[in-house]
Simulated assay, not measured.
Amino acid sequence: MTQIFAHRGYSASFAENTLVAFLEAEKAGADGVELDVQLTKDGELVVIHDEKVDRTTSGNGLVKDFLFKDLRKLNANKKSTKKEPIPTLTEVFEWLTSNKLLCNIELKNAFFPYEGMEEKVIHLIRKFDLMDRIILSSFNHYSIVNCYRLAPEIETAPLFLEGIYMPWIYSQAIRAKGIHPRYSTMPDDVMINTLNNGIAVRPYTINKETDMHRLFKINCTAIITDDPIKALKLRKQYEKRP
């Protein structure tokens, strides 16, 4: 059965990459959450997507230029008067210990390398004993290989914007157990071949019903969506089939 990962939490209805968005994804019944990790100036792992804080918070500037105590003062819930802080990865892991959800961590190091981020993330995963529930992904495939070398017990999955030829061969070459492609760049036959070669396929970001139907029909490993409620309702149609 295709798993449903809430993209940056239940981001269709709640402020993305906030603890409330993750909690609401859990309440909705998602199988997992997807989130993004960066490093502050003083080395704290924080959960935020953009390299700049401008779009999602009340502040301006690059995440890497903020001290954590200053980043924490920002409101990550611009659409509401209710303030939501930018969470730390530690806080998210503390919450994960209270449930059985999977977690896809995207390392946001394709633009800024964030030296030492892989080691910090892996240390935290091991500290909370979450090795079997975490998938590490990145558009920076050198980082993915580094993660595998540091922690072969943790699943890795490269992210792709463009289509790739025989992605299962590439995945095997870099010891990745999964791929996270842009859904529109990977035809069904390529996805099926990848799945048949033992590589998990979790396309992003699936918000249209037609795209959900397409991926449920081929029994894709997972979909990454902003709206887990919509995805769960549609998936029920496939659960009832023999």
Score class of each variant (00 low, 15 high):
134 I>H: 08
194 T>N: 05
80 S>E: 11
191 M>F: 07
64 K>P: 02
91 E>A: 12
180 H>K: 00
3 Q>E: 15
3 Q>S: 12
162 E>G: 07
206 I>A: 08
39 L>W: 10
176 A>Y: 10
161 L>H: 12
107 L>E: 12
234 L>Y: 09
49 H>M: 08
31 D>F: 09
15 A>H: 05
226 D>R: 11
206 I>S: 03
50 D>L: 00
64 K>E: 08
101 L>Y: 01
106 E>G: 00
28 A>Y: 01
34 E>L: 12
231 A>I: 04
17 N>M: 14
163 G>T: 05
153 E>H: 10
143 S>D: 03
158 P>Q: 02
227 D>R: 09
159 L>K: 01
101 L>T: 05
120 K>T: 00
106 E>Q: 04
84 E>K: 01
211 D>W: 02
119 E>A: 14
20 V>D: 14
178 G>D: 04
185 T>Q: 12
223 I>V: 13
62 L>D: 08
83 K>D: 06
196 N>G: 09
235 R>C: 00
180 H>G: 07
25 A>I: 12
41 K>L: 01
23 L>F: 14
237 Q>K: 15
135 I>A: 01
8 R>V: 13
239 E>S: 15
111 F>E: 15
72 R>M: 08
195 L>D: 11
229 I>S: 11
76 A>L: 07
80 S>G: 04
129 D>V: 06
179 I>Q: 12
229 I>V: 15
149 R>F: 08
184 S>N: 09
238 Y>I: 04
23 L>M: 15
162 E>Y: 08
18 T>L: 07
8 R>S: 05
139 F>Q: 00
161 L>W: 07
91 E>K: 06
139 F>T: 01
117 M>E: 13
17 N>Q: 05
93 F>H: 10
22 F>D: 03
216 F>H: 03
6 A>T: 10
137 S>A: 09
117 M>K: 15
226 D>M: 07
161 L>P: 07
164 I>T: 08
49 H>T: 06
189 D>R: 14
238 Y>M: 05
200 A>P: 11
99 N>K: 03
224 I>R: 03
242 P>D: 15
152 P>M: 11
124 L>W: 07
143 S>T: 08
122 I>Q: 05
123 H>M: 12
63 V>I: 05
176 A>W: 06
172 Q>E: 14
49 H>L: 02
34 E>P: 11
34 E>G: 14
81 T>P: 10
145 V>Q: 14
49 H>P: 06
149 R>V: 00
12 A>G: 03
230 K>N: 09
152 P>C: 07
218 I>N: 15
232 L>Y: 06
218 I>K: 15
177 K>R: 12
117 M>Y: 11
160 F>L: 10
166 M>D: 13
56 T>M: 03
37 V>Q: 09
209 E>G: 05
240 K>I: 14
71 L>F: 00
83 K>E: 10
239 E>I: 15
218 I>A: 12
132 D>P: 02
34 E>N: 11
204 Y>Q: 01
202 R>F: 08
71 L>M: 00
95 W>A: 15
89 L>M: 06
80 S>D: 13
134 I>Y: 09
130 L>T: 04
142 Y>E: 09
207 N>A: 02
187 P>A: 07
